[in-house]
Design a protein around this nucleic acid. Structure first.
Lengths: 240, 240
DNA sequence: TGCCCCGAGATTGCATGCAATAAGTTCCGA
DNA sequence: TCGGAACTTATTGCATGCAATCTCGGGGCA
């Protein structure tokens, strides 16, 4: 049915490992996050379908999921458009993230196992290594993992799910926060304190450190974004 | 299992007002919330398709949405199953809701317009009326509206979206909290204070009142649910 | 008796075709 | 030259068919 034979040059066959639907969902989400699909623009089903070598059915299912995630907006009989964030939108999401981490921090301080704390400590070490090697992308991803792990340590499935979802939504914008070297260095120091508070299970302190960390990071990111583009623009390649 | 012959109540033509997909999403969500689809059980596509008189395509799109909302779980090549909540799952979600309202409360106290406050006051009056008329269902819905409106007054789109989603997920369980008359009466009193704090724009107070309100409500609901069923069971007919 | 394999039936995932709707274009009159 | 209406094209929403996969009951074997 599919010409699975010799095709590796102009259109990478894109091997769907799981279901086509899951594959295309992840792929289109990435395209949005990476900025390959311009915010505010409509997404042509045919184009994406040909690009990914799948039919319209799984793509339309992916659209529904991405709409629920808040990455696109679907108007009946018109189509899907990439939602364009304003800086205020992102700030709103970050406010939510701060609130979610606040719940998570206190619970995590109470409930985290030693193994979980060790895991975060390990991630922290790897993050510092990435920082010292100036590997921005690796740093960024480990950084995200640390925050997610702390939230996960709260053992609240609903919290983890909501947090992860909201994080993904605005990932590309937060990336800009680390573009400045001095801010980057301070962020690492803040993480040092965060790890310490977590290890000592000091919930309220952890909560406040995280809050301050996010606010500072976002202020930097917002400045960088507004300097780079008057309107909401994604940092290209802000994901793996 | 369904006799398609003389049908007047089990399969009304069901006029799809918008798109079939939106219609069936809402319909199936309702079926889950009302407990018509048993938690833990698989959902047979064919049955639902025949029941709602639509094809499988919009239904499968609905499944994707509902999965993202956390109401069902889809296993590839197996199908969709209604997720069954444990009491701890619900409690986790309520913890999240409390956290989200905490953010919302402080912002709402700052940013709410007089019109929004008036609107909540109006809803409150209607809620009291429903209470005095012992119209439990009407009370329940207006109650939800009040909380959502307060959150909306924070003018944080991300917050409103996440809050609404999480609320919908566990709606059926919270309904049980009002089954006890004395708790119901106390809940109304608490709402009186909540409205007052909101009108006076006392953010921190509002936050704490809401927190206490939810904790008390949930304790009652949990007790009622555990008395009614050893495992997680929905209160039948917990929605319009 | 219990376990494992397997084949028929049921069910899902996906591609495709068709009708309905929106978007884009041309042509006409003012 | 410009505005608008009718028409053409493009695109979406949905139904359906087919292949792939899973479910589940029966028979062979230890």
């Amino acid at each position: 049915m599919q010409s699975r034979g010799m095709s590796d040059q102009n259109s990478p066959p894109e091997p769907p490992h799981g279901t086509r639907s899951a594959f295309v969902t992840e792929r289109v989400r990435d395209m949005i996050i990476r900025g390959e699909l311009e915010p505010g623009s409509r997404i042509n089903e045919r184009v994406v379908v040909e690009q990914l070598n799948i039919s319209r059915t799984p793509l339309r299912e992916a659209f529904k999921v991405l709409e629920r995630e808040g990455l696109i907006s679907i108007r009946p009989n018109v189509g899907a458009t990439v939602v364009s964030f304003t800086m205020d939108d992102v700030e709103a999401s970050i406010e939510v993230l701060i609130g979610l981490e606040a719940i998570g921090a206190e619970r995590a301080a109470e409930r985290a196992t030693e193994a979980e704390i060790a895991e975060v400590a390990d991630l922290h070490a790897r993050m510092v290594a990435a920082y010292e090697a100036s590997e921005l992308m690796a740093y960024f991803h480990v950084n995200q993992d640390i925050h997610q792990k702390i939230v996960d340590a709260a053992r609240n499935p609903a919290l983890s799910r909501v947090y992860a979802g909201e994080c993904a939504r605005i990932r590309r914008f937060r990336f800009a926060g680390n573009s400045d070297r001095s801010r980057w260095s301070r962020a690492v120091q803040e993480h040092e304190q965060i790890l310490d508070a977590f290890a000592r299970r000091q919930g309220p302190l952890l909560r406040e450190l995280l809050r301050a960390h996010h606010i500072a990071g976002w202020q930097q990111a917002r400045r960088a974004l507004e300097a780079g583009a008057p309107r909401a623009m994604p940092a290209r390649g802000a994901t793996k």
